[in-house]
Design a protein around this nucleic acid. Sequence first.
DNA 1: AAGGTGATTTTGATTACACAAAATTAAACT
DNA 2: AGTTTAATTTTGTGTAATCAAAATCACCTT
Lengths: 229, 229
Amino acid sequence: MLPSSTVENYLKAIYLGEAQLGEGQRLVPMGQLAAALGVAPGTATTMVKTLAESGLVEYEPYNGVRLSAAGEKLAALVLRRHRLIELFLVRVMGLGWDEVHDEAEQLEHVVSDRLIERIDDMLGRPEVDPHGDPIPTADGQIARHESATLLTCPMRQRVTVTRVTDQDAAFLRFIEQHHLMPGEDVEVEARDEVSDSVRLKGRANQRITIGTRAASKVRVSGSDTSSRG
Amino acid sequence: MLPSSTVENYLKAIYLGEAQLGEGQRLVPMGQLAAALGVAPGTATTMVKTLAESGLVEYEPYNGVRLSAAGEKLAALVLRRHRLIELFLVRVMGLGWDEVHDEAEQLEHVVSDRLIERIDDMLGRPEVDPHGDPIPTADGQIARHESATLLTCPMRQRVTVTRVTDQDAAFLRFIEQHHLMPGEDVEVEARDEVSDSVRLKGRANQRITIGTRAASKVRVSGSDTSSRG
DNA sequence: AAGGTGATTTTGATTACACAAAATTAAACT
DNA sequence: AGTTTAATTTTGTGTAATCAAAATCACCTT
């Protein structure tokens, strides 16, 4: 039986929840899942129990939920569709990178495999979407490389933005305006616990100060000369 | 409240049902509607009653259903999305004209207005889709021009195919193989009641004989657009 | 050990959509 | 008219997904 849009959304949310959890447990708590999906806690519990019955997740009552192998593969394919569509909308259709997330959220559940492969071809089998998120392969493999953020990377050193892990349109527009999109270079000048902020030297040595919460959403890798993850 | 995919499909089916009915009543019988949607008759009755309550259709028990002004506009917009998507998939994505219908059937319910307008731009505000079906404007206007078919057009006279009104993939492939796609020229050589067939002289004077049912699905226009019963 | 707190699960309803089969109606045919 | 037929409507059920609110559980504090 092919999964409904709802099932796909649950799997995706669990996948993303696992990812942003530490390396350890990978058990997504029900509350977090319900919040991510915008449903009441009881709804999530009920749904997760039926997902567990069809073998897509492992459910530990009162502890949380984690994807099974089958569930993870399905989630990866949803993510693949989502991210290929986002990139397609930006590169081919000329939409802004801040407006493609919602559109992809809808399209990801209905595009055929045929069309997705066509899109993949047309884009030259890309590895990341406009936000730098990795695109899983057609068989559900995904490159999960650990990387630093503007909050954890070395200071006073040129680094390159690789990924922006927040889909909020206003945030994305801010990032774009300040030249912090994937591919741009930046340097952390200072971090201040007290003011909860990070000072950056961006393009043309322009100074920008952003909050630590925002800084943690911008992933970077050591600039060109060094290794990549 | 924005219409569900199901509601959109009902409206579309009623719209198309009205179109293929004669000019007169335009009351689509429940049986036909149910068959078109692939649901049980009782299901269609129930649904149509709720559509009538929301003012999208006029329902005459035991007689049938017809779109209200509001319903017609909504249906036209669904059709607009469907046909723009079909053309987009053929022209931009390079899919075959026989495989785009099902894909569009899914996509038409989820694409945003923003994306549709982008597609419309990209295609140069086209008037017809790959099958020659007219594309409604953004405000729900549609050009409903009467035209002859291979069954009703004048004989022994060069005419041009304008439209193929059947979405069956096998049928469309047949049409393509015999050069009867919109834009191609053709001439009716003979019609035979008894054998229920029509003989055509197509491209390079090739002879093809097709059934009258098939012939009635190929619309044409010529120098003289006279039609007869 | 005993409570209290917050997260989680249960319970009872609701909405949207569907089906099968029984009941009904309109029309057609003696 | 009376009866058959075919289409349509009703009725009773079922599934998927949701919510609010009550009950329960795990854990932390005292």
